[in-house]
Design a protein around this nucleic acid. Structure first.
Lengths: 148, 148
DNA sequence: CTATATTTGTACGATATCGAACTAAAGGAG
DNA sequence: CTCCTTTAGTTCGATATCGTACAAATATAG
């Protein structure tokens, strides 16, 4: 690859890394207790996609090692936001369900986020977000496919 | 804000988060020892911007708490990649210099990255990276300014 | 100058992340 | 069925991240 193309990639990943960091920090600053982004993300996933998935399926959905998912789920279960039951089809695994409390927490969090987006929208419109979204999705898929 | 604008932001930050995670994991998988992205980033910053900065200045440049920077610098110093000397202008602080070893490590790492970008370029061109870069920079600045 | 407030960096504790090794269950070959 | 391999999840250890509390130095108010 020509060296002069590297800086664009470099700069792009750098900006993406900083944005992710800032967004996460801003989000977590509004979460109570010791709730952290992955906690919320899993709750959201269980509602948006489906309840009753196994930890391994969740780990793959979030591209994290299964051991990290074990930890995240333990935190959610400790807080009573999910509950797990044995998988009748496979005694090695469990299935994860979101609880009423978890659902309520997620709904409240989303309400808060919507409010907090207001000042951002003034400077970076939803249209601009929509505009770059397809490129980001493509990039994510390419990186995902490039994993060994 | 209208609720129907939220999903775009949500999806955008979600994609950005995943991309950052995948890129970081791919990068760190190619780093030896226990070297981690922030280690490299600091070395790169010391070369690209300037040597001899104080830890606090570095922490602000990377938007991390100063206590995290202390930790990152300790790791670099333990590996002999930076060295610190007292700041003659302010006895409370130090100044951080990159060593020959740190410089060599950073140069090698960049060479490796350039090679590893090749398969990505086939599916996501440098032009596309350049195209979305200004929007990402804008977004980063907006988020940065929105911090309390 | 002296007292107070601020700034710089560190120590410590809590939690997150993740690789390696492990256990238990399931699948597959014979 | 028995043995071997694979799969799901956990445990453990190493390290990262970051908030709180602190010590030392500096800046500021009076």
């Amino acid at each position: 690859m020509a060296d002069d193309k590297v800086p664009s990639y470099f700069a792009m990943f750098n900006e993406i890394g900083i944005i992710a960091q800032l967004a996460r920090a801003a989000f977590e600053a509004r979460m109570p207790d010791g709730m952290v982004l992955p906690h919320f993300s899993v709750l959201n996933h269980l509602i948006r996609v489906e309840d009753g998935q196994t930890p391994l399926v969740l780990a793959r959905a979030f591209q994290v090692p299964k051991t990290s998912m074990t930890h995240t789920l333990a935190g959610l279960e400790k807080r009573g936001m999910v509950e797990t039951r044995p998988n009748p089809e496979d005694a090695r695994s469990k299935r994860v369900w979101i609880t009423r409390k978890g659902r309520a927490f997620r709904d409240d969090a989303i309400k808060d986020i919507v409010e907090d987006f207001a000042p951002i929208e003034a400077q970076f419109s939803g249209e601009r977000a929509s505009a770059i979204l397809p490129e980001l999705e493509d990039l994510r898929k390419v990186l995902d496919a490039a994993r060994d």
